[in-house]
Design a protein around this nucleic acid. Structure first.
Lengths: 224, 224
DNA sequence: GCGAAGTTGTGATTTAAATCACTTTTTAAA
DNA sequence: TTTAAAAAGTGATTTAAATCACAACTTCGC
């Protein structure tokens, strides 16, 4: 492994933290690593678009990727964000159908990509990997099911409350613009602004430089 | 196989048409079949509820099953319908989380169920099966993604048009009540009635005893 | 530290669609 | 075949939230 640069060495270590790959013997992992293409991308770079044929599988080594849907008028709904050591783009490689959503970097990022054939070879060679991928796919199903649930049954206030609660379980300090929050819940920026302002006035939330902070989690849960 | 009754023989043949099972050698399939419990259910019988722990995997041998979400106020959104030889209920068995949706029979049905441990044993014994299940799970992801897309970007007319077009690709004659159609697209019965009436007046659709018939597919596609 | 770009705050207006409240029609069961 | 139950049609009303149209703040890159 001495031939790897420090940079690559760093990324190689990240690769080992990914559940699908971590089980592979080091020798095999290294061979796979040679097939990966390193992509350094600036922020807001398009990775693929809804409707395109899927050619690659991606692993996030650094930065953040947004998976989203867009309307002809240019509106967007955010489906999810991905950070190291998560991966994405496997769906179209599994079923040979066009991309169901688009992907773009949020911050400047480093991605590793694996071409379709290599990904499929990998899957046939290591069928256990199918089970790991199945795991992330079930997570997608659950996330999307919840999103449908929220969209149909909850008003904007309820959806904002749920989103803030969900985000707070994954990170401290929720730093998103109102526009981004609106995209996550399928609403309009102004409406989200008004809802958040209202929750701030009721001392349920507090906004500071680190983003949104929950003051009364119980009050927020009542809005669900 | 002589010990199987005619009834069971019939269901056994259905079992063989299911992609996950069809690859198994007959001997192994028969052993698995012995572990299956046969359930004859009347129409509108609850199979499981959102939030419950998942204990079984189900195969539809006869009839029709609805997968849906419900709100505290008693409203419902339909996620999908399942017919022979489809299966369902695997999600919670794969990730050990509560049921993400509820299931109930639509017509009187026959289901085969496999207990969690047997399902999991089956998966470890036949890792190729993970790939087949992965296939149906990706279908769920695509269906749900489309549902989110429609809910956020389309108005009720657009959602009705899309649903009718989608259904028409799978069956001739779309026979659902307006209420059911409303549940499928997350809208209200009255609104759906008005939209369909309007499409009928414009000679885009025709309603007869077999349900909805599309007259001008191109007009319907324009509404998407 | 300045100016431009990106965010947020806010009122006014519009709009789609839910809800309500019935009637009429269709379907299925006794 | 009557009648009960389910489904569909329809006007009127209400409502939540999108949209429009700016002003006022923040940030942040030069």
């Amino acid at each position: 492994m001495k031939h790897l640069t420090d940079k690559k060495e760093f990324d190689f270590r990240i690769l080992k933290t990914i559940p699908i790959f971590s089980e592979l013997p080091d020798s095999r992992l290294e061979a796979l690593f040679e097939k990966l293409k390193r992509n350094e991308l600036k922020r807001n770079t398009c990775i693929f678009l809804e409707g395109e044929p899927g050619k690659e599988f991606f692993i996030v080594a650094k930065g953040k990727v947004k998976i989203f849907l867009s309307s002809p008028e240019g509106r967007e709904v955010t489906l999810t964000f991905l950070e190291p050591p998560q991966f994405f783009g496997e769906l179209s490689l599994l079923d040979d159908l066009p991309r169901s959503a688009s992907a773009r970097t949020v911050g400047s990022s480093i991605l590793y990509s694996l071409r379709k054939e290599s990904f499929q070879n990998f899957l046939t060679e290591y069928p256990q990997a199918a089970l790991r991928i199945l795991k992330t796919t079930t997570e997608m199903v659950r996330r999307l099911t919840e999103q449908v649930h929220s969209l149909v049954f909850k008003d904007v206030q309820g959806r904002v409350a749920k989103k803030i609660l969900d985000l707070s379980k994954k990170q401290i300090g929720i730093k998103f613009t109102h526009q981004e929050l609106a995209n996550m819940i399928g609403s309009a920026r102004e409406t989200v602004s008004r809802v958040i302002l209202n929750l701030e006035e009721k001392r349920v939330l507090k906004i500071n430089r680190d983003g949104i902070q929950i003051l009364q989690i119980h009050e927020l849960e009542k809005l669900l």
